[in-house]
Simulated assay, not measured.
Amino acid sequence: MSSAPEPPRLAGIGDEAAPGLPDQIAAVRELGWNLLEVRTLDGVPVAAMGDADFERAAERIRAAGMEVVAVAAKIGDWSRPATGDFSADLAELDVLARRCAVLGARMVRIMSYPSGGMAEAAWGRLVRTRVRALVHRAEDAGLVLVHENCAGWAGEDADRALDLIAHVDSPALRVLFDTGNGVAHGYDAVAMLRPLAEYVAHVHVKDAVDTPGGDTAYVLPGRGRAGVAGCLRILADRGYRGALSIEPHLHLRPHLRGTGADPGRGDPAAFVEYGRALEETVNRIWRTEAVR
C-alpha cells in the first residue's frame, strides 16, 4: 500500500455564505478552513469597491488569518459580451493587480465572452486577441488568469479551451474547472475535464440536477448529475495540488442579476453543510488513491 496522497486544500467563495465579510469569514472558520475565495463584499465586486472599503476588508482578512486563494473578476463573464468595450476589462485587471498584491492572491477568475451576436469565426479571433492581451498584463503583475468553463467562446468546449491555451502560450493562463457548470450549459463535465486536467489550477465544486420545468437546481455535492466524484477522481489521478472551492449556489445565483431576478443572499448554515459534504467526498476519493 502506498502512502496516502495529500488531499487538496478546501476553500469557499465567501458570498455564497453571506453578503458581508464578517459572516463570510465566520462560515469558513466554522469549517476549520482558512482559504477564502473573494467575489463580492456586500454585493460589490472586489474591483468596484472604494479604496477605503477595500483596505478595511483586506485588513479584516489579514486579522482573521485567512488566505485569499483567488479573486473572481467580471472579465469576459455573462455580463460582458464580446461586442462590449474591452477597456472595462483592462481597467478591472489593472485594479485587481494592485488589490491582489495587497491580498496576497495570485489567481484571478475570468471567462471568455458571450458572443453578443458575433459570427463564430470573428468571435473566436476576438476572444483569442483579448485574452492574450489580458494575459500579458497578468504576467507583468505576477498573476495567473484562470479561465472558467462557463460563459464564453471557450467555456463549453474542451477543444476551444485548449486552442485558447495554445494560442496564448503562457503559464499565466490556466483553467478554473467548475464541476457543476455542465448541467446548466449542456455538456458532460467529466468528459470535458479529461483533456483539460493538466492545465487545471483551481476548481469550483457544485452539483446540480435538471428540474421538470427545464431549469437547473443545485444540490449537495454527489447528489446531482454533475459527476462531482468522477471529476475529483480525475484530479486525484493527476496529482492535483490546487484548492477545491465550494460554490453551492443553494441560496445565491449571481447570474440571475442579469435577468432582473433575485439572486439570493447566501446562507451560512447551508454553506457549512456543503463544506462538510465535500470533506467526506474528498477524504473518500483521496483515500482510494492511496491503495491503488
Rank of each mutant, 00 (worst) to 15 (best):
A4R: 14
A11M: 04
I13Y: 02
I25P: 06
A27V: 03
R29F: 00
E30S: 15
N34W: 10
T40W: 00
G50F: 04
R56A: 14
R62Q: 14
E67P: 00
R80G: 00
R80T: 11
G84Q: 05
S87M: 05
A88I: 13
L90R: 11
A91G: 01
A97G: 15
R98H: 09
C100V: 04
V102T: 12
L103F: 08
A105N: 04
R106N: 06
M107P: 00
E120M: 03
A121L: 15
A121R: 15
A122T: 08
L126T: 10
V131L: 07
E139P: 02
V144P: 01
H147W: 01
E148M: 06
C150Y: 06
G155R: 05
E156P: 00
L164N: 05
I165F: 14
P171D: 11
A172D: 02
R174S: 14
R174Q: 15
L176V: 09
G180S: 03
G182E: 11
V183I: 13
G186Y: 04
D188N: 15
A197K: 14
V200L: 07
H204F: 06
D210L: 14
T211L: 11
P212E: 09
D215K: 12
T216H: 13
T216Y: 14
P221D: 00
G222M: 03
R223A: 14
R225P: 00
L232P: 04
R233P: 11
A236F: 06
A236K: 10
R238V: 01
G239A: 04
G239T: 11
G242Q: 05
I246D: 01
P248L: 03
P254Y: 01
G258I: 02
G258T: 13
G260S: 03
P263Q: 03
D267A: 05
A270Q: 15
A277C: 10
V282Q: 10
V282Y: 05
N283R: 14
R284K: 06
R292H: 12
